[in-house]
Design a binder for these strands. Structure first.
Length: 493
RNA sequence: GGUCGCGUGGCCGAGUGGCUAGGCACAGCUCUGCAAAAGCUGCUACUGCGGUUCGAAUCCGCACGCGACCUCCA
């Protein structure tokens, strides 16, 4: 980018397992694809972490001046439940249980997903394509794979021939798997006689009679394989090869590995230049997952009404808590850590309010330029939000010191600090003020100011019994008074 | 069983060869009528055992502990 303080950006590419300088294919444009949710149940906090990781990446790329096309899909063709059922579509299964149309389920949980994204202040993607809306593209891709010789039909289903593909192309590169090891580790394939190899995966699946979501195809009634939608839709909206593909660590294999194979087989080139994977949110050291039953919904989180929660936490507390660890590290959820995050966020946000009221001085007692530089370096070093937040607390210290008259900053530096803090806290980290601050509600503020005046009068005549009574009663109502040199401020608890 | 990764102070969590991360908690101090808020100060760790190096939390090996994916499967 033209502004030297802003670049270059380094990100960890799963393909090389190293930090690489990010150079877009067609600057200033950047194509970003992120695997979205499967809309057959509520998203839980672990899912949110993954989407949050790429939300911040999207925000940062945008801040750096890139024109980002951010595509995040909705998987509304069912996946298998896996170890529970016998090949029944997840969405169809849910539908029968709840006596709903499949698309009703899809709509319900898509709406819920959007609500959660809004709650945690995640930006909307540029395009949010659905799998059901792209059947033609997916069928086209299956045809191209068959044509290239890497797909074969068996009994109405079409499978991807992994061993044949691996003869001429890399398979397992992304996830560090070797085809011979995969074969060695695979058990008997009984019941899967349609497949030529246990490593083969379906790219089109024949629909059983009871299956509700199905479409006509050259191979009969069926539905697309679950790796296919991302390949078809990313190709459609971002091109045959695009810049960044993100997703949770658990999608590396087989999902993303299969995506690569499909694109190479269908179109002859690798689809993605930089693969990025976010790590898992854990609870007591275990991955938060639907199958573990250790997830909670946003409602439970906010209310604290869940056995894992000692109390409720605000969405921004959660967002801040998550950003205090690096996206590539596992993060363990605990009440103690949440409460620490809650306190830290309060201090940060309080400073943001103070920031707007700073009075300039003649000299600079702090180096804002250096602070700014460190913030950019942290973000450019693989989106290191925890380090960046550490720097922001240096900013908090400066702000409060200036406010206390213990440090001075020139008007220019205050302006610069203000821009930096506001940009990083609100635009990049995507935090927002949740607490009602004084002044938001004029009637309320007027009332409280009246009490503050009464208390000041009591204090002036040394009637501390009366002044403390006023303060204590306001505290009991959730109004906290803070005495400063300029007078008394208030905030809600 | 295979592959990959992790193990940091009271808690959370950065850090990849020498330089105090940061947050929370705790203690003391300043300010204050008291409190709160804020600032300052203190608490200085890196699973164990070997090795490389002038020097290792950071590199290598082994051990122990933990996790993710795969091992059933679209």
């Amino acid at each position: 980018m033209s502004d030297p303080k802003k670049g270059p950006l380094y990100i960890t590419n799963t393909l090389s397992r190293r930090k690489e300088e990010f150079v877009p294919l067609r600057p200033p444009h950047v194509g970003l694809y992120v695997c979205g949710p499967t809309v057959y149940s509520d998203v839980h906090l672990g899912n949110v972490r993954s989407f949050l990781t790429f939300d911040v990446l999207y925000r940062w790329l945008t801040h750096l001046g890139y024109k980002v096309r951010y595509v995040r899909n909705i998987t509304d063709v069912g996946h298998l439940v896996g170890d529970i059922d016998e090949g029944e579509d997840k969405i169809a299964k849910r539908a029968r249980l709840e006596q709903l149309e499949p698309m009703e389920i899809v709509q319900k949980y898509t709406n819920g997903f959007h609500d959660v994204m809004r709650l945690f202040n995640l930006l909307s993607p540029s395009i949010e394509p659905t799998a059901t809306g792209h059947l033609i593209e997916q069928i086209g891709m299956v045809e191209r794979i068959i044509k290239s010789g890497y797909g074969y039909e068996a009994n109405g289903s079409v499978y991807f021939d992994v061993p044949k593909f691996a003869e001429k192309h890399a398979y397992g590169e992304l996830s560090g798997r070797r085809i011979d090891e995969l074969l060695t580790n695979t058990r008997d394939t009984e019941g899967m006689e349609e497949k030529r190899s246990p490593l083969d995966f379906a790219i089109w699946k024949k629909a059983e009679p009871q299956h509700l979501m199905k479409w006509p195809s050259p191979w009969g009634e069926g539905f697309p394989g679950w790796h296919l939608e991302c390949s078809a839709m990313s190709t459609k909206y971002l091109g045959g090869t695009f810049d960044i593909h993100g997703g949770g660590m658990d999608l590396k294999f087989p999902h993303h590995e299969c995506e690569i194979a499909q694109s190479v087989a269908a179109d002859g080139h690798v689809p993605v230049r930089y693969w990025m994977h976010g790590n898992m949110l854990t609870v007591n050291g275990r991955k938060m997952a639907k199958s573990e039953g250790n997830g909670f919904t946003p409602e439970e989180l906010l209310s604290g009404n869940h056995k894992l929660l000692e109390k409720g936490y605000s969405a921004m507390t959660v967002r801040f808590f998550m950003l205090q660890s690096h996206y590539a590290s596992t993060l363990d959820f605990s009440n103690a850590a949440m409460q620490a995050g809650e306190k830290g966020l309060e201090r940060l946000m309080a400073a943001m309010t103070v920031l707007g009221k700073l009075k300039p001085g003649a000299l600079d007692g702090a180096d804002v330029t250096a602070l700014e530089k460190r913030c950019y370096e942290a973000m450019n070093d693989d989106i290191n939000t925890p380090v960046m937040i550490g720097e922001l607390f240096e900013g908090v210290r400066i702000i409060n010191s200036v406010n206390d008259g213990k440090l001075t900053l020139t008007a220019t530096s205050i302006e610069r600090l203000s821009t930096l803090m506001n940009t990083m806290v609100f635009d990049v980290l995507g935090l927002k003020q949740e607490q009602q601050i004084a002044g938001d509600d004029r009637a309320m503020d007027g009332l409280v100011q009246e009490f503050i005046r009464m208390r000041a009068e009591a204090k002036a005549r040394k009637d501390f019994t009366a002044s403390d009574a006023i303060r204590d009663r306001l505290t009991a109502l959730g109004i906290i008074l803070k005495d400063t040199k300029e007078g008394t401020a208030w905030e809600r608890a």
